[in-house]
């Protein structure tokens, strides 16, 4: 029992009262205004399809891998996209290793819904042999530090990783035309995925019976908030998914206001992701260029150095 008490996050009455009081006068404990987003940094790993996203204190890492599998019966010519979330107890003592908690499942579902049901990733182009072989894309998200608003950070990490991921090129050949050859990346340049649009999740927290709305709640605000809502939107203003699970009810007008703000923020974040991916791609291309190191050794230690 004591172990459990030791692991849960505790908030003092003082903090709760202060956060609520300060929000009444539009102040947030980290000095932001209600509709300020925290600093978002996107970094990439050395391999294609890995990303690391930091949103304030929140830290999420994403890896994308692919595998050839048999397609589902009802969709013989569509590849699969699946999202797995790993909550490390290092990120937050309240996360238990191994067993995904209620929040982990919800988080996975929000991202899954935003990406898959809005058909952001073109799954038909992942088909190799209809009914026989398709590519299954797996996105692994690792929560490294929980500083609040995991949904948005994890979503950005997943997008960034998917944008930089490249699946191996494969050709169909053989006598019966049914043999699949997967070419290693050194032989044939791997293919990037086809991504139609970027659904960006933007979270809001509600306080004081839904009268106070803030964007991108921090860990402490999440502990105090009465309800939350996540809107997944893209740059063209389409609402891809909305998640409002329990908590305080909010007015229709508040939801509409949130969606308007979300579409602005989504455009902002999309451009950030695109810039980061572009820099990564140019760096990647530069790495491919092979430069010969100069073969002429110059003797510099002698006084009678001569350059030929």
């Amino acid at each position: 029992m004591e172990q459990r008490l030791g692991n849960s996050y505790r908030m003092t009455i003082n903090e709760k009262k202060f956060i609520e009081q300060a929000l009444v006068s539009d102040l947030r404990v980290d000095g932001r205004r209600p509709f300020d987003y925290r600093r978002l940094t996107i970094k990439f790993g050395s391999e294609d399809g890995s990303s690391e996203v930091q949103l304030g204190q929140t830290h999420v890492m994403a890896f994308v891998t692919s595998q050839l599998v048999q397609p589902y019966r009802d969709r013989p010519n569509e590849g699969a996209l699946s999202i797995f979330i790993e909550f490390s107890p290092m990120a937050d003592p309240s996360f238990e290793a191994g067993r995904p908690g209620e929040f982990a499942v919800e988080l996975g579902r929000i991202i899954d819904r935003g990406l898959r049901e809005s058909r952001a990733v073109d799954t038909e182009s992942l088909c190799v042999l209809a009914g026989k072989l398709v590519w299954a894309i797996r996105v692994d998200l690792h929560i490294l530090d929980n500083g609040g608003n995991l949904v948005d950070a994890a979503n950005v990490a997943a997008l960034a990783a998917l944008l930089t991921f490249r699946r191996p090129e494969c050709t169909v050949g053989g006598e019966d035309g049914q043999e699949v050859i997967v070419h290693p990346p050194e032989v044939k340049e791997p293919h990037p995925l086809i991504i139609h649009h970027l659904p960006v999740a933007i979270s809001f927290a509600f306080f004081g019976n839904g009268n106070i709305v803030v964007i991108d709640p921090s860990h402490k605000e999440e502990a105090v908030m009465g309800g939350r809502m996540t809107a997944t939107m893209n740059t063209s203003g389409d609402v891809c998914a909305v998640q409002k699970a329990g908590g305080e009810g909010v007015l229709h007008s508040v939801v509409m206001q949130c969606l308007r703000i979300a579409s602005l923020k989504a455009a902002d974040i999309t451009s950030k992701i695109k810039n980061a991916v572009e820099t990564y791609n140019t760096e990647r291309a530069l790495k491919k260029v092979k430069r010969h190191s100069s073969l002429v050794a110059v003797e510099v230690d002698g006084p009678e150095t001569k350059l030929k």
């Binding site: 003082n14 202060f18 009081q21 300060a22 006068s25 102040l27 947030r28 404990v29 980290d30 000095g31």
Partner: peptide, 16 residues
Amino acid sequence: VWVNASAPETVILVAN
């Protein structure tokens, strides 16, 4: 660390 002041602005400023 615990901080208190008459105005919440001051508390937030000092804390940060």
